[in-house]
């Protein structure tokens, strides 16, 4: 088991290097250091001297991949790519183009993201499982049919409409929660209610349908029929067997997204002005602060890989037949 995990982690390195190269090439082709300097120095009265100074300070005046003038190993190390990418592997994100410490920013902005995504995930699971189980229980009846149609209808509405609608009705008309913003500590709750609710409603359609399918599959299995034949009541079968066994694929499906909860949701965060990592990324994109974007890409990849490893492990935990090798 441990050796397997170690192997997976070792396997992650080439992937992360690949990610790094792709993002690096993309961003440096897009944005020359000159562009970055101009972006950061503002728009009024910028001269060339200021730009070269800015580049020099940040090490952007170095060659991109290969330093012809340097000595020996420094030919590779004394380049923009090496200086900017290798440090990522020890989670030293360096400073953003605007001069802030990215690592510190990430550690600060992680919490608001989690304050939205974690309740969203838990409440979402509860709600979707309840709905899915209800529909599965009433399979074939009008409850099921109308429920499924409702799900398809809800799936067909763009998430943007849920956000706009929620903010408009609950925040503006009914004065139930603040329209947007965030606060620390206990005060954060009133700000998180609406984003969580919107995320929840937006996901009902697809998730409920998916969970219903899982439960239906479970109900079609032999042991359920056996249990019923033995005289167990429908509800008992449902709760004790179908629900418990259906949870396995659901929870292992959840494990893969667990790490990405840190990243938060790009759209929801920027609509509700939540200072999490999602809005951090969006801001960085629009401000073209590529030091941040690259760090976030890297972080996203790391979390994705952790998610994959966790999924594998969780499979072995819930199903002893699966062996890791």
């Amino acid at each position: 088991m441990i050796s397997y995990i170690l192997r997976r982690i070792a396997y992650a390195f080439p992937i992360l290097i690949g990610v790094n190269i792709i993002t690096f090439v993309l961003f440096f082709v897009v944005n020359t250091p000159d562009d970055m300097a101009r972006m950061q120095l503002g728009m009024k009265r910028v001269d060339d001297a200021a730009i070269s100074k800015w580049k020099e300070e940040r090490g952007y005046d170095k060659p991109i991949l290969w330093n012809q003038d340097a000595e020996a190993i420094e030919k590779i190390t004394d380049t923009i790519f090496f200086q900017n990418s290798v440090k990522l592997f020890i989670f030293d994100f360096g400073r953003s183009d605007s001069g802030r410490d990215i690592g510190y920013d990430i550690s600060q902005r992680m919490w608001p993201s989690l304050a939205i995504t974690v309740p969203g995930l838990i409440l979402g699971l509860l709600a979707y499982i309840t709905f899915g189980l209800t529909l599965a229980f009433f399979r074939g009846s009008y409850v099921d049919v109308s429920g499924v149609i409702l799900c398809v209808v809800m799936m067909s509405i763009s998430g943007l409409f849920y956000i706009i609608g929620g903010q408009y009705l609950i925040g503006k008309f009914f004065h139930l929660v603040p329209i947007s913003g965030y606060d620390t500590g206990f005060n954060a709750i009133k700000f998180t209610v609406l984003p969580v609710l919107v995320g929840l409603v937006g996901g009902i359609g697809s998730s409920t349908r998916w969970y219903r399918t899982i439960f239906l599959e479970e109900m079609g299995k032999d042991y359920v029929r056996t249990a019923k034949a033995k005289g167990l009541s429908e509800t008992r079968v449902l709760y004790h067997h179908v629900l418990m066994n259906g949870l396995i694929p659901i929870l292992t499906g959840v494990v893969v997204i667990l790490p990405s909860l840190f990243i938060g949701s790009l759209i929801v965060e920027s609509f509700f002005a939540i200072p999490g990592l999602g809005s951090y990324t969006i801001d960085a994109i629009s401000a073209q602060d590529f030091a941040i974007v690259r760090s976030m890409v890297f972080l996203g990849s790391v979390l994705y890989i952790i998610g994959l490893i966790l999924t594998d492990i969780s499979y072995t935990l819930v199903d002893p037949r699966v062996r890791l090798n």
Binding site: P178, S180, G181
Partner: peptide, 18 residues
């Protein structure tokens, strides 16, 4: 001074007295 990137929420909060 609170960060308000979107103009609509800022406007609505002004109307609500915030």
């Amino acid at each position: 001074y609170s960060l308000e990137k979107e103009s609509i929420p800022a406007w609505n909060k002004f109307l609500q007295g915030y």
